[in-house]
């Protein structure tokens, strides 16, 4: 079983939930930018939530499915079609061998995820299948996909849902159930997004003006934004006085401020350590929102407490728990 890459898209790479345990050796975490969408895609095809998926950015690939496959597409909407016919996101889709899955114009969000039942059959490197692009390790030969690549897919036991889709499919090239999940959080048309942040312990070192400006005006996501981080432009944020700082760890969602005053939100491919002052930390529950913001859009930061961030994190996990249980019963053919 395999998938052939007819055209690779702008930046399509294998990503799972990341490579943990090696940051102390300078090995970055990598992994999906929008882990919420990534986890949903896997759940929808009955995989473990952390299985590797294809992460597609702004302009998606064109893929030839060389076997019957159960797949799911989540996250940003890159207008996916199968043999020219529009295919819905957020649900399992059974697709016939020989079909072409093609991604087109960007309708919402920024990144889309493609999971296949069984997962992509590629080796783990240091406990993860994620592509570490700069060090050229992990994923598919350590790089983004190219035309002609053949992605092997692991065989897996058929799900009860797939069997019933098979029966109703007839001569069509794909079939899907009427239910779906997780459509609501990727905004269709918005150019402005609210992102909740917790002030960092270095927040008080910034000037009173800068501390106000962080929350009182929007910041634009510039085109120099990638998987490593989003570079923002807006108010120039400055420290009250120069800070003698030595490098220390950074985290997913850390907002660091280099001397030019333009904040950077650190994301999946962030370095393990950094020497710039950190003004705030994006709440874990809003990282997926950030990952779907495309260059040119604007971010309004909203201050929340650590307690609130913890509550949002727990609520997000409870939400995924709930979806998992519902989806699993649907996949097993248990209807309520």
């Amino acid at each position: 079983m395999s998938i052939k890459v007819l055209s690779p898209g702008l930046l399509t790479s294998i990503q799972d939930l990341g490579r943990y345990g090696y940051q102390k050796y300078g090995v970055i975490v990598s992994g999906g930018m929008d882990t919420y969408a990534l986890r949903l895609a896997n759940l929808l095809v009955g995989n473990k939530e952390g299985e590797a998926t294809l992460e597609m950015t702004l302009m998606g690939p064109s893929l030839l499915l060389e076997a019957d496959l159960l797949l799911a597409i989540t996250g940003g909407d890159l207008s996916p079609t199968i043999n020219g016919e529009s295919v819905p996101q957020g649900r399992p889709v059974l697709v016939r061998k020989g079909s072409v899955l093609k991604f087109g114009a960007l309708k919402s969000g920024c990144r889309s995820y493609l999971a296949v039942r069984g997962g992509y059959d590629i080796p783990e490197v240091m406990g993860s299948k994620s592509t570490y692009l700069r060090a050229k390790i992990g994923g598919y030969q350590g790089r983004a996909l190219l035309q002609g690549d053949i992605l092997p897919v692991r065989c897996s036991s058929p799900l009860s849902l797939a069997e019933s889709l098979e029966k109703t499919m007839g001569s069509r090239s794909f079939a899907f159930p009427s239910w779906y999940v997780g459509k609501s959080y990727v905004s269709e048309t918005s150019q402005e997004y609210k992102v909740r942040v917790i002030p960092n312990s270095q927040f008080p070192l910034f000037s009173p003006d800068s501390r106000k400006q962080l929350f009182q005006q929007p910041f634009q996501v510039t085109t120099q934004s990638d998987r490593m981080g989003y570079r923002l432009s807006g108010a120039s944020l400055q420290l009250t006085e120069p800070l003698e700082m030595v490098s220390e760890a950074v985290a997913l969602g850390t907002i660091q401020v280099p001397p030019d005053g333009n904040p950077i939100i650190l994301l999946a491919d962030r370095q393990t350590v950094g020497g710039y002052p950190k003004i705030a930390q994006v709440a874990g529950a809003d990282i997926s929102t950030v990952a779907q913001i495309k260059p040119g859009s604007r971010i309004w930061f909203v201050e929340i407490s650590l307690a609130e961030a913890e509550r949002l994190y727990a609520a997000r996990e409870a939400d995924i728990q709930r979806i998992t249980i519902t989806v699993q019963s649907q996949l097993a053919g248990i209807t309520t």
Binding site: I198, Q281, A283, A309
Partner: peptide, 10 residues
């Protein structure tokens, strides 16, 4: 000992 987001401690 300082908080560092909801998933890390410094």
């Amino acid at each position: 000992i300082l908080p560092f987001g909801e998933s890390a401690i410094l």
